[in-house]
Design a protein around this nucleic acid. Structure first.
Lengths: 120, 120
DNA sequence: CTGATGTGCAACCAAAGGTTGCAGGAGGAT
DNA sequence: ATCCTCCTGCAACCTTTGGTTGCACATCAG
């Protein structure tokens, strides 16, 4: 059930990764993990408007796509961001963004060309 | 129902816009609209693995956040991408991506500093 | 051992993406 | 005007997913 390529075959985006970072709560969790260095389901839930169990599920999702790694420490289970995977995710975000920008530019350019030709 | 700022107060991301572009089907619809220039619920659904009704709902969402604009043309209702809004969305994607990158860099730098201090 | 604290699992709820089915409006052909 | 076709819009329904509550189990501190 992974993904690959969009309908137009340009973006080459991993849908699993996207849906993982598409959720606002998960994005905030990543933010917290980045700033704090690490965190458990309990500590994260204290700084978020959701319950510990919800956070635990999200951590499961993030762990499954590899954005986060669990480090069991006795009683608790500390989670830390996987740098490489997050970098990959960030790259994909930037990629899609710049793809859109590029197309918008191209469209604008074409529009201007048409405008010029009509003036001839 | 808008949004604003993440838990750490850094990103300033519009959650409505994010959730709009977070859906893979909607992203592909935007792709198609960008490449084709315009499209109706029917034409888009023909090039996507979902039904016309599903596409119509997505167009509703995209229209609500302003990423797309409807242009009634007699029998059919043509949709076109709103350039400014999509540019805004692209900027936000790039913003979050670069924020993550920056934090990863900072963490890496700190780690290296600690490593150095330990060697003293 | 006893009491906190942290985790894990299960049942349950609501919202969202998706489907089928059907009624209705706009054009083209006769 | 009529009929047929095509596209849209609305409603009911299913499934997944983000979220909750509740409870059982494990681990550390006293």
């Amino acid at each position: 059930m992974s993904a690959g390529v969009t309908a137009s075959g340009t973006a080459t985006v991993d849908d699993d990764l996207w849906s993982a970072i598409g959720d606002p709560t998960r994005r905030r969790m990543l933010d917290l993990l980045l700033t704090d260095g690490e965190g458990t389901a309990t500590t994260l839930s204290q700084r978020l408007p959701v319950t510990r169990q919800a956070v635990a599920k999200h951590l499961g999702v993030l762990d499954r796509v590899g954005l986060v790694r669990a480090v069991p420490a006795g009683k608790e289970k500390r989670y830390r961001v996987d740098d490489e995977q997050l970098a990959r995710a960030a790259a994909q975000l930037a990629s899609v963004g710049s793809t859109w920008d590029a197309r918008l530019q191209r469209i604008k350019r074409i529009a201007e060309t048409i405008h010029q030709n009509q003036q001839d």
